[in-house]
Design a protein around this nucleic acid. Structure first.
Length: 1008
RNA sequence: GCGGAUGUGGCGAAAUGGCAGACGCAGGGGACUUAAAAUCCCCUGGCCGAAAGGCCGUGCGGGUUCGAUCCCCGCCAUCCGCACCA
């Protein structure tokens, strides 16, 4: 394919430059002055004004997940989502919305830092170069972003506010009574932490005679006296306060990579090895900053019901949050005052608890381990700690553990049960300890079998379960032939035999269920579950749970509770290229370290300049190398951790609304307009539907962020909402995941497979419009689909047909000759000026057939865009063009409306043809802007058919198609169907028993 | 193992209770051309048939219905998450 279908190489740069020069896609905030000439102002009669939110048209916020600007540049997967959102942004603009469609850079990140470690080049340099390359690539695709709102998370003007939001978290606590984040000042302290003196003014002074100090001095003295008296309790209060903050410090097990000398984030650990270098990673407790996301678990779960995300995505978030209802139960340790609390979802199986298991890291171990077992326990703890995550999962098939030598007392029956430790119990879930009910839990069952612990059934399964077990033909169970014998020799019916068999297995289950090969983990009815005070025998599982839990609560032995899989967010990284924490460390009089926030005025806190970006030899983060930066004049020491990459992406969508604001992270007006529903519907706009929604109206991005980014951002947003900084509880109202684009070989694109498609190459050969169109034509946005270069050629040919639909053949030949002569060095505009439109384009009304073709196209494209069905919208336009090519006369107005439909998909080509089309008419007002021209409306009256094709079925099989007047009655339809020629052979000699007539659709004749 | 999604021609796909395969790719034939490219026109799910036409066909097996790619039940396969979460 050597010859160009049309001169996209001239058209595309021309319009991209025009859009940029005229700031065509600038989005206007409330209060902005709209220039007199700007097409947005012209369209909405706001030119030269500074409209308030109520005067602006309704907003539509269309957001892409901003990219990490990697050194590799864009691949064809990126623009898939960007193209979809750009088409919608242009469509919504045409519909009369004020569209916010921004782009920016998630530019903190590991690759730039690793490059810095290797080469000493400052990560900012690498980052800037990568951003420049990404910008070039993205701009070449002709997206209608408002580039004045561009932002980068690495920009100090941006991360100043990331740090500011961290301070909001730091200075807040979660009030369980209100279920909200509140300023830390509203925290109430327990009675033992009451200040001795509440108010320094209440301290009475006894003046010495002759003391002539001023009353101000008295106040100073009173303050000092209060301070001294309260000092001790104040220290405890600080500790209490610090333990309640949404941002707090905790000794947490982290992914420590000895080889790299650093801590890794979970997402940087793959199969127990570091993503970089593939070195082993172990769990190690270290002091870390944590964010209290768990406090919001319930709301993060419940509010999923208020937003339009795909089921699968919501499900992934639900699984991650992992809510489960159960009970906390206390077990007394025998011969000790200590209690072990366990979390269980099956309190109804308490009578079947035959041993307990603590995680190897459990804090009570040092108290309860007997001297005889101490060595074995210690050895096991070391064994478990030394295991990498990889080894833990690899070895998970075989359970390991050690007895502690201690016993606990089962609270329901006082029975002595051994306490074990095993690494199948996780320190980080529940209480880090379990009651083991091997008869009703797979893991406990496996463990009990291995270590020969008692297995006691306390839930009776249904007969079906026994029969299923039997059908798996296990050892020890009755054999198939036993069953057959029952039927044959004992003369039993099938169901009697099954009952008898189930009965036999049940007896065995009650007596010696340790011979079974699997436990019963489902719901049944309780057995063997009674003590002197309470019995749950015979109760179905749900009722048994409720009753035993109530009993435990009444005896003070336990309580109903809800547990979550979600953990608090480990928020610190031992890295250079991230936001420094606005935190310093100090020592109190007793010499204890404590932390304090820097004042807002200290923001942004910039990272120090370094020569060496490696962690220090003793495992300190790189920031600890900057000795000057580290220590403040008052002796306090800066926090040397930095924030993770997620921090910047947690709130960038808010900054887009007001990215230049130096006084606030976003102004309330801008936030209220773009994120709230403050904008008023514009009565003049053509189709402002669907209505603007709270938050981002549409967010498009890959599934790789299904959980972490989207959960973290929702969490921050809720905190900001509680503190009154934003007006909605959820940030992203509607979210769509674009599907992965695979290589031509159907495999995931990767450098090593050599199947990566570079957009630059595609653009060079086919142009941006063809590229955009193909990405959308491949299939549904959400689907995974393979790239196919022949497919690009197909849509490219379609654009060529559109070109030839408009352009005069002779002029095209002239243009080609001129281009050859000037060999591309001539003025692009002069060359394009040679192109003349076809003489077949006439200012005549369209024929009914032409108008029908146009309006059918308008209808389908509009409906498809509303439903994000880009692929079928494009095929509809192909059908229109194929038909229009044959028209001897091409009505001007019909082609004009078609260009409006094409414009969101292929904006450059549409602009060029729009310009030429309008140049045919010497309109004194000049050429109207395509980008703000109103979306065409279809006229249903033009689509009405005079006659309809109606399929005729006989007994549900298609036999003929008849043509009837559109207004035919059911009776007429029936008659016509019975007379249908090709149906006759199937009707001959038979009586029509029944006739189904679906008006305007079909007739089905049922014959005997 | 658990959860979710998907399964339709040679390929990407469309139709979501009513003519299965729109549109595009690939393939075949033709027009234009000295020739090629480009463009334009026609054909193109399988089987039987000279044709007219018929039969079969949306992963597999059942069901609901006058009628099922579509709704329900049970399987199978593929992909994506999560995975000792008590």
């Amino acid at each position: 394919m050597s010859r160009r279908q049309y001169p996209f190489h001239l058209i595309e740069p021309k319009w991209q430059q025009r859009w940029e020069a005229e700031q065509t896609f600038r989005a206007w905030n409330p209060g902005d002055s709209v220039p007199a000439s700007h097409p947005f102002g012209v369209r909405h009669e706001l030119a030269g004004k500074a409209p308030a939110a109520s005067e602006l048209p309704p907003k539509f916020y269309i957001l892409d997940m901003f990219p990490y600007p990697s050194g590799a540049g864009l691949h064809v997967g990126h623009p898939e989502g960007y193209t979809a959102t750009d088409i919608l942004a242009r469509y919504r603009r045409a519909c009369g919305f004020n569209v916010l469609h921004p782009m920016g850079w998630d530019s903190f990140g590991l690759p730039a830092e690793q490059y810095a470690v290797k080469t000493g080049q400052h990560p900012r340099k690498t980052t800037e170069a990568n951003i420049a390359n990404f910008t070039r690539q993205i701009r070449s695709l002709g997206f209608s972003y408002d580039w004045t709102r561009e932002l980068a998370t690495t920009d100090p003007d941006y991360f100043k506010w990331t740090q500011w939001i961290f301070l909001q978290l730091y200075n807040s606590w979660f009030n369980p009574a209100t279920n909200k984040a509140e300023p830390i000042e509203t925290l109430t302290y327990p009675p033992e932490l009451k200040l001795v003196i509440e108010d320094w003014r209440s301290i009475t002074l006894q003046r010495n005679p002759g003391d002539n100090s001023s009353p101000e001095d008295d106040d100073e003295f009173r303050k000092a006296a209060q301070k001294a008296m309260n000092e001790e309790v104040e220290q405890s209060r600080r500790a209490y306060r610090d333990s309640k903050r949404l941002a707090y410090v905790s000794e947490a097990p982290v992914n420590w990579c000895p080889e790299l000398g650093t801590v890794l984030a979970n997402e940087e650990v793959i199969d127990g090895k570091s993503e970089v270098g593939g070195f082993p990673v172990i769990r190690k407790p270290m002091k870390q900053w944590m964010l209290r996301i768990t406090a919001f678990a319930e709301r993060l779960l419940a509010d999923l019901d208020t937003i339009e995300w795909s089921d699968s995505l919501k499900e992934m978030q639900r699984n991650w949050i992992g809510r489960s209802e159960g009970a906390l139960v206390d077990f007394q340790v025998q011969g000790s005052t200590s209690k072990i609390t366990v979390f269980t979802t099956r309190p109804d199986t308490l009578f079947g608890a035959t041993y307990m298991v603590l995680s190897p890291e459990h804090s009570l171990l040092k108290e309860i381990v007997t001297p005889e077992q101490a060595a074995a326990v210690k050895q096991y703890q070391e064994f478990a700690a030394g295991k990498s995550d990889l080894e833990r999962t690899e070895l998970s098939k075989e359970k390991t553990g050690v007895w502690t030598g201690a016993y606990a007392l089962n609270p329901v029956n006082g029975e002595q049960i051994p306490i074990w430790i095993a690494d199948y119990v996780l320190a980080s879930y529940g209480t880090g300890a379990i009651m083991a009910v091997p008869a009703h839990d797979e893991r406990d069952f496996e463990f009990a079998k291995k270590f020969d612990l008692q297995i006691r059934p306390v839930v009776l399964p249904s007969a079906d379960w026994f029969l299923e077990l039997h059908s798996e033909s296990q050892k020890h169970l009755p054999k198939q032939r036993d069953w057959e014998r029952m039927i044959e020799k004992e003369g039993l019916g099938l169901f009697q035999a099954m009952d008898k068999l189930a009965g036999q297995i049940e007896a065995m289950y009650r007596e010696k269920c340790h011979v079974f090969h699997k436990p019963f983990v489902g719901e049944g009815s309780a057995i063997e579950s009674a003590n002197g005070e309470i019995s749950i025998n015979g109760l179905p599982t749900q009722e048994a749970k409720a009753k035993i839990t109530a009993w435990l609560e009444s005896k003070g032995l336990g309580k109903k509770t809800v547990n979550f899989k979600l953990r608090d967010w480990l928020f610190s990284r031992q890295r250079y290229w991230g936001e420094p924490f606005p935190i310093v460390w100090k020592r109190d009089d007793a010499g204890n370290l404590y932390h304090e926030a820097l004042p807002e005025s200290a923001l942004p806190l910039l990272p120090p300049a370094l020569d060496d970006y490696k962690p220090t030899a003793d495992g300190q983060p790189p920031l600890a190398r900057a000795k000057d930066w580290l220590t403040l004049s008052d002796g306090s020491i800066r926090e040397t951790n930095t924030m993770p990459q997620w921090a910047g992406s947690c709130w960038y969508y808010l900054r887009y609304a007001d990215n230049k604001n130096a006084a606030a992270f976003v102004s309330p007006e801008a936030e209220g307009y773009w994120m709230g529903t403050a904008s008023s519907p514009d009565p003049k706009s053509q189709t402002p539907s669907p209505k603007p929604t709270p938050g981002v109206d549409l967010y498009v991005g890959g599934t790789e962020h299904a959980v972490l980014h989207l959960l973290y951002a929702r969490f921050w947003h809720k905190v900001l909402f509680d503190l009154g900084h934003v007006s909605t509880a959820e940030p992203f109202f509607k979210l769509v995941n674009q599907g992965l684009i695979l290589g031509e070989d159907g495999q995931k694109m990767s450098k090593s497979r050599g199947n990566v498609v570079n957009p630059d190459d595609v653009l060079k050969e086919f142009g941006a419009d063809a590229f955009r169109l193909y990405e959308m034509f491949m299939g549904p946005l959400q689907d995974v689909k393979p790239w196919n270069t022949r497919g690009v050629e197909g849509v490219y040919r379609f654009l060529g047909r559109v070109w030839r639909l408009f352009v005069d053949e002779k002029a095209e030949t002239d243009y080609e000759q001129a281009e050859t002569v000037t060999s591309g060095t001539g003025s692009a505009n002069a060359l394009l000026g040679i192109i003349k439109l076809s003489a077949a384009i006439k200012d005549e009304p369209g024929t009914p057939a032409q108008l029908k073709a146009l309006h059918a196209c308008i209808k389908k494209v509009t409906e498809d865009l509303d439903a994000l069905r880009f692929n079928t919208a494009i095929s509809t336009m192909m059908i229109f063009v194929n038909e229009a090519m044959a028209w001897p006369v091409k009505p001007w107005a019909v082609l004009r409306d078609f260009l409006l439909l094409l414009a969101p998909f292929a904006p450059h080509l549409a602009e060029e043809l729009w310009e030429k089309l309008h140049a045919l008419r010497a309109d004194p007002a000049g050429i109207p802007s395509l980008s703000y021209a109103a979306w065409p409306k279809f006229d249903p009256a033009l689509l009405v058919e005079d006659t309809l094709e109606i399929p005729v079925q006989v007994n549900g099989k298609l036999r003929d198609v008849i043509r009837v007047p559109a207004g035919a009655t059911n009776a007429e339809l029936e008659e016509a169907a019975k007379a249908a020629e090709k149906a006759q052979p199937f009707l001959a000699g038979k009586t029509v028993k029944k006739v189904i007539v679906v008006p305007k659709k079909l007739v089905n004749l049922i014959v005997a």
